[in-house]
Simulated assay, not measured.
Amino acid sequence: MSNSTPRLGRGRAPERVVVLGGTGFLGRNLCSALTAAGCEVTAVARRPPPVPGHRFRRFDVVAGGAAGLAGLLAEERATAVVNAAGVVWRGSDEEMTETNTALVDVLLDALALFEVSPRLIQLGTVYEYGNPAGAVDLREGTPAAPTSPYGRGKLRATEAVLARDGRAVVLRLSTAIGPGMPSESLLGSVARRLADADGPALVELPVLRGRGDFLDVRDIGDAVLAALRTPEAAGLINIGRGELTPVGDLVRRLIDVSGVTARVVTLATGGSRRTKGFEERRIVREVAGQVLGWAPRRSLTDALRTLWQDTSIERRRHA
């Protein structure tokens, strides 16, 4: 199969970007960021978005297969594909690992059918690193040894992309914060409890230990856009703030931003299957600055404010 769309650079024609997983938390925010930057965007997912706002194609990548996906990309005349799809919170451990791998295998097979394929930007995760012995700072060359199903599945996907597509970029992301966070996530669940409260809110939480690297989801949109506009970029690039923030501090900041009176109760059980086996490590983002000219621009308080505003609007919409 050949792609008749010319590969035009910045300033000559807009990128035509297909975002796989375009109705999820990352995908929706990416579609908005790329559209605002002048790209022609098509969101692809198995389910339509709850609030339409972008061109949408309903398609199951794994079930549709490589030929079906290649046909869709040709019809959209895609110059780039951003893979924001994957299982983060739902499903068994085995499903979490396999689903994050199987879709990428189909995607790579589809791109191999093109004479000149769309450029691939794969969204990975810093949880692919796991807890490498002796490592304090996590760099692109740090050996990856994930212990969670989520990290293992995403690492397999990263390895497949880097082995088969020399032009692809894998952005290894720290934890994103912003509008549309799923209720299964810690901050997403806290925001919903605050928004649902008619009076003082009761917020029940697992024990919040340690610190993590958190990032405004809009800064991730900037990183993807920078990768699109840097055709010579390829390989693995860390995307994070490069600083650690206590998880409990973020919860307290979110409560402050909301203005809701809340009582926080700590439970003895619970925790995230995604973060299992990932302790405090600083994400080094020097390569992102050198290759993409990227650095985070927004504060975590700004990220929490957009999360709260979106959650409040959603609650009023369904009241």
Rank of each mutant, 00 (worst) to 15 (best):
V265L: 05
A268G: 14
A233P: 12
G242R: 03
N238M: 02
A234Y: 14
I239A: 08
D249E: 15
P231Q: 01
T266W: 08
S258A: 13
G235C: 06
G240V: 02
D222V: 09
L254K: 10
L244A: 07
D249N: 05
V251Q: 01
T269G: 09
N238H: 07
L225V: 08
V257M: 08
I237E: 10
T261Q: 15
L236Q: 10
R252D: 15
T261H: 11
I239Y: 02
V265M: 12
S258T: 12
R263Q: 14
D256W: 15
R229N: 12
E232M: 00
D222I: 11
S258F: 08
E232P: 11
T230V: 08
I255C: 05
R229M: 02
A268D: 14
G240C: 01
S258Y: 11
E243Q: 14
L254N: 10
V224G: 01
A233I: 06
R252W: 02
A234N: 15
L254H: 08
R263W: 04
P231V: 04
L254D: 09
L236M: 14
D249C: 09
V247M: 13
L236F: 11
S258N: 11
A227R: 07
G240Q: 00
G270K: 07
A226H: 00
S258M: 10
G240Y: 07
G240S: 04
V265S: 08
T230M: 02
A262P: 09
R263T: 14
R252N: 15
D249K: 09
